[in-house]
Write a protein that binds this DNA or RNA. Structure first.
Lengths: 163, 163
DNA sequence: TATGAAAGGCCGTGAAC
DNA sequence: GTTCACGGCCTTTCATA
């Protein structure tokens, strides 16, 4: 299946308003609600839509501090990477972790309540991870852009996007 | 309003399954669907829930490459920061942008189709931004953790979280 | 202040075309 | 892709502790 422009419009709407009713959607798209429902279901079945999630205001839970952390291991063996990764997935304050090219570094995004809280996370969650040799932390002082989906997916300015 | 343990359970469920019905939720929570609906509405009105979004499989759109980009400006004046930030919010391939402490660096997360596509983004979206003096790019070769909400919010292992 | 039960309208679903 | 009918869900109201 190949998503056409109408499918992209549906995805654009659902990506910011996942609980919109079929009827409301169909009014905006100028199509019957049944047709919309079928297309939405097809987008789910074909894996374009992985699921639906509530967006929470994390500052409402006291999580006001974002920290970018670079971790260097003491070895680049598969065993070391595997051990580290098995540990990092269990760290409750880590929301993203990338293995970066060009070095043996991982980049983490960590959420903390404040700087003291990050000190605790550093000590109790990150430092004890296996094979860690160096941890460098940088605090984000402001967030300018935060979106889950780049608008280029919906054909905003970008170029053609057919398979 | 202060979220109690039942509210946290509702949030935990909605954060991974935003389109669950009230009745299904009420069966799992052991509460009437009316009570669940009222609590959910209160969580929305009080700002705990900012909205609901569809999770898209970006690889289905050909976006298989994540790049972490550090940008240094040629000046640290408020004017320079403001100009740069007005430009970066319009870049369709940038999904996150942080102003980092300790330097005049911004950290961006950019999504591209592949390395050639990133070269295009670098040339057409990033380099033309005002006041940019240096751009360093690192490719993510694997993603180990990716979640929107740290499990600590729902009281998984962490410590007390009352106001 | 928060819950539970029941009525009514709206929405989602599936058949037929 | 559309229409239509049915069944279920969501919403509101009201009674209760």
């Amino acid at each position: 299946m190949d998503a056409d422009q109408l499918d992209l419009s549906i995805l654009a709407e659902l990506s910011t308003n996942a609980r919109i009713s079929q009827i409301e959607l169909s009014n905006r798209m100028g199509l019957s609600s049944t047709a919309i429902a079928r297309r939405q279901r097809a987008l789910e079945d074909d894996g374009y839509i992985k699921g639906y999630q509530a967006m929470l205001d994390l500052s409402r839970f006291g999580l006001n501090t974002t920290v970018l952390v670079r971790v260097t291991l003491d070895s680049q063996s598969d065993e070391a990477l595997k051990l580290f990764e098995m540990g990092i997935v269990k760290c409750p304050s880590v929301i993203r972790c990338f293995l970066m090219s060009g070095s043996d570094d991982y980049l983490l995004i960590v959420l903390a309540r404040d700087i003291e809280d990050f000190e605790r996370i550093h000590r109790t969650e990150l430092s004890p991870l296996p094979r860690v040799s160096r941890i460098q932390s940088n605090f984000a002082i402001r967030e300018i852009v935060n979106r889950a989906v780049p608008p280029i997916v919906f054909g905003k300015p970008g170029r053609s996007r057919r398979r």
